[in-house]
Simulated assay, not measured.
Amino acid sequence: MNQAFRDLFGAKVAGAVASAKALGQVDHSGLKGALREVLVRSLLRPFLPPSIGVGHGIVISAYDDQSTEQDIVIFNRASLPCILIDEESGLFPLESTLFTIEVKSRLNATELEKTHEKAARLEKLRHTPGETTPEHVIPCLFAFETDLVQKTDLHRYQELIGTSDPSIREICVVGQGRWFWTPQGWHHTPPTDTYSEVAGLIDGISSVYERVQATRSRPLLLNYVD
């Protein structure tokens, strides 16, 4: 552990959480959403390598499929080019997209169900054929706080999906914990006063993206335009 690094990271997350709570008092959903996305990107971008981009928009496939609008899209800059409307927003080819993150200021049952439905639709996008079976985009959910007191959002999600495999593969709720799914089941990072749950999310993305990208084909641009 490096004390200075830990303290600076904790201060950065604490500032983002405080800003998100203040934004929660603003009665304008579009403004709240845009600003919360910027806050989360400010936590992600400094800890990801330059080859990994962070944007906002829609994931598309070569088969004319598309996702719903995604709050955060984490993509590989070295793969197929993305079509950006501005510096961050646009269309992201499926083969380039590694993670998506839905951002909530305060998570509740309705927002959790909407996020699950968006992740389930994303799962249906079809990859172009390759030498190996491609690992799909990993949908994540990040919330600055939750309306739950007696149980966790993982329990709420398990109640929602029953015995089905989850469409949301990672859940991080500040102050509650982080859960990520593998074929062996759910794994938990408990919350700490230095925000280990948030550090776990960032570390998970940093340590997994190369594995995901290695399973992907690299189709020709013509697959998307012709």
Rank of each mutant, 00 (worst) to 15 (best):
K104I: 03
S105F: 00
R106E: 11
R106G: 00
L107N: 00
L107I: 02
A109E: 13
A109D: 08
T110N: 02
E111C: 00
E111H: 12
L112G: 04
L112D: 02
E113H: 06
K114Q: 14
T115Y: 01
T115D: 11
H116S: 13
H116Q: 14
H116A: 14
E117L: 14
E117N: 09
K118T: 13
A119I: 09
A120Y: 06
L122N: 12
E123A: 15
E123L: 15
K124G: 08
K124F: 05
R126W: 07
H127S: 08
T128G: 01
T128S: 14
T128P: 00
G130E: 03
E131G: 01
E131C: 01
T132V: 08
T132C: 02
T133Q: 08
T133K: 10
P134M: 11
P134D: 08
P134G: 07
E135V: 15
E135R: 12
E135H: 11
V137Q: 04
I138R: 15
I138S: 13
P139N: 12
P139W: 08
L141M: 12
L141F: 10
F142P: 06
F142S: 05
A143Q: 10
A143T: 13
F144T: 04
F144D: 01
E145L: 00
T146G: 02
T146A: 01
D147W: 05
D147F: 05
D147H: 09
V149I: 10
Q150G: 01
K151T: 14
T152I: 02
L154A: 05
L154R: 13
L154M: 06
H155S: 12
H155C: 04
R156S: 14
Y157E: 04
Q158H: 02
Q158P: 01
Q158A: 01
L160C: 02
L160W: 08
I161E: 09
I161G: 03
I161A: 03
T163C: 03
S164I: 04
S164T: 09
S164M: 11
P166T: 12
P166D: 07
S167W: 13
I168G: 07
R169S: 08
R169T: 08
R169M: 15
R169Y: 06
